[in-house]
Each structure stands twice: as C-alpha cells, then as structure tokens.
Simulated assay, not measured.
Amino acid sequence: MSITLSDARIVTPDGVHDGWLTIEDGRITHVGQGAAPRAGHSLGGRYVVPGFVDIHNHGGAGGSFPEGEPETARDAIALHQRHGTTTMMASLVSGAIDDLSRAAAALAELCEDGLLAGIHFEGPYISKDRCGAHDPQALRDPSPAEFAGLVKAGRGHVRMLTIAPELPGALDTIREAVASGVIAALGHSDATFEQTLAGIDAGASVATHLYNALPPLGHRAPGPIAALLEDERVTVELINDGVHVHPAMIRLAYEVAGPGRTALITDAMVATGLPDGVYMLGTMAANVANGEVRLIEGGSIAGSTLTMDVAFRRAVREVGLTLPEAVQVTSATPARALGLGDRLGTVAAGLLADLVILDDELNVAGVMRRGAWITEP
C-alpha cells in the first residue's frame, strides 16, 4: 500500500520545504519539493517532522514502567504515541535486584512486540547524596556480575544504564555494560571533574538529565557538568519542561554541546496525562501540582509530566531553536544515541515512516508510526 502526503511543510536537517512524500510498507520512499506528482492526502500546509525519540521515560496515563506491568505499560506507551513519541525507552528506577529483574523480563515482552526501543536502568548504582526521588535504601555499589544478570533478565533488550562513576566498581561495570551492548550513562552522581572523565574514558556516552541530580558548576571545582558538556563523546539529556532546567541553561548546554550532542527527554512519570494529585513512585509518594512533581517527604523533584510535543514547542518558543534544530534534539540526536540513526529520526527516503504532523501553533495534528496512522490528521 502506497500513501502520498501532499501540501506539506517538511522539516529536514537543511530547512523547511514545501513538498510531499510517499510511504510504502512502513518506510518513506520519496521526499520531494513542490506539487506532488499524484493526488494524495493533503496536509493543508501543516508541518511534517520525524517522530519524537524519548530515551528517558518512566511512564504515564497511570502506567509505571518500574512496576513492570505490561498492560498498564501499554497505556503509557499509547499516551506518549498520541503526543508524537514513536520511539521510546522504558526507564526503571532503583530497586531490589530481584524486582528490577522481574520488571525487565516483563518489559522485554513489549520490546519484542516493537512497542519499546529498550529498557533503561536508572540506578541502583547511583550516589546516595544525589539520589533525588530514588529510594536511598535501594542503592548499592556497582557490580559487573550483578549487572550482567540484569542484562540477562532483559533478554537482550537492556539498552542503557545510569551509573555514578565515583562509586567502587563503577568503572568496571561501565566496561561490562558497554561490552554487552548497553549504553552507559553518567548521572545521579557526586563525581569530580576527573572522576567523570574516567567514566567517559571507560565507555560512558550519555549524561542522564544534565544539571539535575548533579553538583552545580564551580569555577575551581567544575564537577561533572563541565566534563559531560565539553566531551564530544557524550550526548547530554535535558528535561525541557521549565521546571527542571531554566531555558537559559538549556541554551547554554545547546551552545556548548550543539545539536549533534543534545537530546531532549521527558523523564515522564505515571501521572503524565492525568489530573494533579498524589501518586506513588515505587515506595515513594509524590504530589503533582500544576504538572510539577515533587516527593511529599523532602520535596525533591520526582520526574515530570512532560510529553515530547511540549518539549518540542518549548525548544522553539522558550529556548529559541529553529524548527530544524528542534527536530534534531527531539528526534535525530536521541535516535543516533540509541544507534538507530540509520533507521529513524529524520524525514528522508529509506527511513521508517515515523512522522508527526504539526499545525501552525506546533500542536500535534497527526501521528504516523511505521506507516500506519495512530492519529490521522
């Protein structure tokens, strides 16, 4: 079956073009400028951008990936798909090893169904001093052998591990992760500049939600933020919800890391898409007020209720990125970080037909995944 989308403003890495595209068997086959060669589905001048890629997401719509319940996880996936996220990771939080193994095994089913791009262990190998909304009782020193067991539980679908590089055993665990094909991400860490570089040298290639759960920049002791920002081997995650990071600091990170190393994420949690109220994050209770999530005990920020379409709009309106730049940081760069840049993340012939249709206000008007409409414009 062939689909032609015409009368579109197609956002590509080199600009915004009036044109058309055709889709066959779930892939983009042609992208052209001007009038379409044959009648198709007119988009009435709306924008076409690639599907968003969220590499750090804990759930939504009442579904929590850390709970490891496939049915409620499907609700979370469906919510984020409706908001334009066509590729997403399921992020877990620190917990007992047996619980993490069980959740990974359950979520592997959704990876095998093609609904998730992989599983992300955010902990338990993180700093107690920078644990944020993680249960400090669940934290532990890294163990390469123990992590190998978690990878086995995930049946080949574990894609990322967040780890604090200063902990005993961390560097060996980073090496074990990378050797297993797992992305090592540095975060929830109290590391020095030098300890952070050691983690990068061991193979870490992502910064987990830069700025958050890290010591602030210092002019004599620069700490992990400076090391992660300036090292060209690292992709930096940023939560662009206006709560976690001020737009000026998003701009600063973007100016240093550039579009090729900046990835916007949601860090969304179970209450995303639901009314304000009290929700459980594992054993931790959190209050959601005006979309902002904080632990009831201690007041720490506890994830977000962000969706990627909102992050995209904020990138343009609040941060000041151009449309091609916003596409880069919400699609192409996170896709590349996952090793999927040759399959998705750009509107180009030969890639998967994962597309988001946006109106003039950059609101989602339609979502296509693998050539099939999730929401038809």
Results as ranks from 00 to 15, higher is better:
7 D>W: 06
7 D>M: 03
14 D>N: 13
14 D>H: 14
15 G>V: 03
19 G>I: 06
21 L>G: 01
21 L>Y: 03
27 R>K: 14
30 H>T: 13
31 V>Y: 12
33 Q>G: 15
35 A>I: 13
36 A>Q: 05
40 G>S: 03
42 S>F: 09
43 L>C: 01
45 G>C: 01
48 V>M: 02
49 V>L: 06
52 F>V: 00
58 H>S: 04
58 H>M: 04
62 G>I: 02
66 P>F: 07
68 G>Y: 01
68 G>C: 00
69 E>V: 14
69 E>A: 12
69 E>H: 14
70 P>Q: 00
70 P>R: 00
75 D>S: 14
79 L>R: 03
80 H>P: 01
83 H>G: 06
84 G>K: 00
86 T>L: 00
86 T>E: 00
89 M>R: 05
90 A>C: 02
95 G>A: 14
99 D>I: 12
103 A>F: 07
110 L>R: 01
115 L>K: 14
116 L>P: 02
121 F>T: 02
122 E>M: 02
123 G>F: 07
124 P>G: 01
128 K>Q: 11
131 C>I: 13
133 A>R: 05
137 Q>P: 11
138 A>D: 10
139 L>T: 04
140 R>S: 10
140 R>W: 06
143 S>W: 09
144 P>V: 05
144 P>M: 04
146 E>F: 11
146 E>R: 14
148 A>S: 15
151 V>A: 15
153 A>Q: 01
155 R>N: 12
158 V>H: 07
158 V>Q: 07
167 L>N: 06
167 L>Y: 07
168 P>F: 05
168 P>G: 05
170 A>W: 05
176 E>A: 15
184 A>K: 09
190 D>F: 13
194 E>I: 12
200 I>P: 06
203 G>W: 05
206 V>Y: 10
211 Y>V: 12
214 L>R: 05
216 P>M: 09
219 H>I: 08
219 H>V: 09
226 A>R: 07
228 L>G: 10
228 L>N: 08
230 E>F: 15
230 E>A: 15
244 H>T: 10
247 P>V: 00
257 A>R: 08
265 I>Q: 01
267 D>Y: 04
275 P>C: 00
280 M>L: 13
281 L>F: 10
281 L>W: 09
283 T>N: 14
284 M>V: 15
285 A>W: 10
288 V>Y: 07
289 A>Y: 15
291 G>N: 11
296 I>T: 13
298 G>N: 07
298 G>W: 08
299 G>T: 08
305 T>G: 09
307 T>N: 08
309 D>K: 01
311 A>N: 06
313 R>E: 07
316 V>F: 04
319 V>R: 01
319 V>M: 03
329 V>D: 00
335 A>Y: 04
340 L>H: 06
351 L>W: 08
352 L>G: 11
353 A>D: 03
354 D>K: 01
354 D>G: 02
354 D>P: 02
357 I>P: 00
357 I>K: 00
364 V>M: 05
365 A>D: 13
369 R>T: 10
371 G>P: 11
373 W>L: 03
376 E>K: 15
377 P>G: 04
